[in-house]
């Protein structure tokens, strides 16, 4: 009988996690405190706004994020997309407070973080949020 309850519990946890992850997927957030950007990220900055996508070798959705962000950058003036593989750069992840991949940081040319997106971004809402920072 305990096994039945264990199964019910596991199914409930899976359901709750599925809802939580769906809600958080593509959510845009803004971090109040500025951080010193690690060199590998700073090296990617271009004029205008750069979308720095942090990925790892083990990240299946990173590919989908890349397709969306690259297309968005190609069609938008002043927006650049760059991908950084942090599989072997855990210090970069830690210093930026990044816990999952893909995470995308929108950074201005001077390194100021405008916003960040956890998971695969939603194209329209991301563009809307970036508008005030684009030329």
């Amino acid at each position: 009988m305990t096994g039945v309850w264990a199964l019910v519990g596991a199914l409930a946890v899976a359901g709750a996690l599925a809802v939580l992850l769906k809600v958080r997927e593509g959510r845009i957030s803004r971090r109040p405190a500025a951080v010193d950007l690690p060199a590998p990220v700073r090296d990617l900055l271009a004029p205008g706004v750069t979308l720095v996508q942090l990925s790892t070798t083990f990240c299946a959705p990173c590919r989908h994020a890349k397709v969306i962000l690259r297309d968005l950058a190609d069609r938008t003036d002043g927006l650049t997309h760059a991908e950084l593989d942090i599989t072997n750069l855990p210090d970069v992840a830690a210093s930026l407070g990044v816990m999952r991949t893909p995470t995308t940081l929108a950074l201005t040319a001077d390194g100021t973080e405008v916003l960040r997106v956890g998971g695969v971004p939603k194209r329209d809402s991301l563009l809307e949020a970036l508008r005030p920072h684009l030329p």
């Binding site: 264990a6 899976a14 996690l17 599925a18 992850l21 790892t56 083990f58 599989t87 991949t101």
Partner: peptide, 29 residues
């Protein structure tokens, strides 16, 4: 045994139903 199997089942089910790889997303952690 049950708790560990339960965790594995949660991860397998999320992968099956949503195509979501919990371990992969949490690689950094």
């Amino acid at each position: 045994g049950m708790v560990a199997t339960g965790f594995a089942l949660v991860a397998a089910l999320l992968n099956a139903a949503l195509g979501l790889c919990l371990g992969c997303e949490m690689y950094l952690v």
